[in-house]
């Protein structure tokens, strides 16, 4: 089955964006060309919809293929040129959610076509196993790549029907997993720096958009952690590990990882974290520095590690028992975020 222009308007990300721009003779440097105004307007509008709608979602406009298809790669260029992480993330998510909604009611064969674009190992099945009807069977590795960060218990592999390497899914679930794949693909495309290639009037459009939604963007960034480390806002698990490390008590490997990644993520300097472990009986400054810097993403894979989820900490006996705030979160870092915000409010109320 081939995807028609009608389909491409729904799922424009399956096309190679650069290729599409070239094919339409869309010159990035010449976006102010009046003939292309409709496309440019819709591109800007796609981003605006992402910023305005909550949850973020770009609208679907049927029977406007001539604008819908090319406006997507142009919007990607505009969002990339914004140079703002919040706009980029929000836009990628909005396009992905749009696709998710469309895929839920899509012809199953078309869903398979889209999945193929991402090299999924997936088949159409019509099966009732036990209590449920399933539409697709997806290889467990493709499943894990996309579902591993979902919180809900129903997305844990252990709670899925897994048979001979295949996870059974309903169409809505397959669409949800594709949403993740699509979001990542768009985010990747947004990484390139295209600002210098764009003409002044186009750049002005982007800056206007940024100005118009400045308060939203600022609010999103405000949700970051305070600059100073706030010890009083540590969750019980981190408090326990922190005290143990400070007093030189034995802390398990995973415990050290949890504590280190937590402190790095709330903005503690790696040297300070290394110092924390100095009273440990097996302290070795070279090894400790290496490990801390590795977790901070300054070495090795270059990814900054996040502390494990509460569920994982429970599995490994590192959760000393949740307090009331713990019951509202799933990760130690969210606890810290919430707590610092309430502490801040208390301070300003005093």
């Amino acid at each position: 089955m081939v995807l028609t222009r009608f389909d491409l308007a729904k799922y424009p990300f399956v096309l190679d964006a650069a290729e599409e721009v070239r094919r339409l003779d869309l010159d990035i440097g010449n976006l102010e060309n009046p003939a292309l105004k409709a496309i440019l307007d819709r591109a800007e509008n796609r981003i605006e919809e992402a910023l305005r709608n909550s949850p973020p979602e770009v609208s679907y406009r049927p029977r406007e293929e001539d604008v819908e298809i090319p406006s997507f790669p142009v919007a990607v260029i505009l969002a990339a040129a914004s140079g703002n992480d919040y706009i980029k993330r929000r836009y990628a998510l909005a396009e992905a959610i749009r696709a998710y909604k469309l895929l839920q009611d899509e012809d199953e064969k078309k869903v398979l076509e889209i999945a193929k674009v991402f090299n999924w190992n997936i088949q159409n099945v019509k099966k009732i196993i036990g209590h449920r009807r399933y539409d697709f069977a997806l290889s467990f590795t493709d499943f894990l790549r996309n579902a591993k960060l979902f919180h809900e218990m129903e997305w844990k592999l252990v709670n899925r029907m897994l048979v001979k390497g295949k996870v059974y899914l309903r169409q809505r679930e397959a669409a949800r997993l594709l949403q993740e794949e699509i979001r990542r693909r768009i985010e990747e495309r947004l990484r390139s720096d295209v600002r210098s290639m764009l003409p002044e009037p186009v750049l002005r459009r982007i800056d206007d958009l940024k100005r118009k939604y400045a308060s939203r963007i600022a609010k999103a960034q405000f949700q970051d952690f305070p600059r100073q480390v706030v010890n009083e806002a540590f969750p019980p698990c981190i408090r326990m590990l922190y005290d143990a490390a400070k007093s030189g008590q034995h802390v398990s490997h995973l415990g050290r990882f949890t504590l280190t990644s937590f402190l790095i993520n709330i903005g503690m300097k790696p040297e300070k974290v290394v110092d924390l472990f100095r009273s440990s009986s097996d302290f070795n400054v070279r090894i400790a520095r290496y490990q801390v810097e590795h977790i901070a993403g300054q070495r090795g894979s270059r990814t900054r590690y996040k502390p494990p989820r509460c569920e994982t900490l429970k599995t490994h006996g590192l959760c000393p028992g949740p307090d009331d705030l713990c019951k509202t979160i799933r990760r130690p870092l969210s606890y810290y975020g919430k707590k610092t915000r309430t502490l801040k409010k208390e301070v300003s109320a005093n």
Partner: peptide
């Protein structure tokens, strides 16, 4: 597969986080 994905495999094998109701 990264560590997070491998952890999901571990949980499957050890039954951690299993909710019987989700298996009907």
């Amino acid at each position: 597969l990264d560590s997070v994905a491998r952890k999901e495999i571990v949980d499957y094998i050890t039954g951690v986080g299993l909710e019987a109701a989700l298996h009907g």
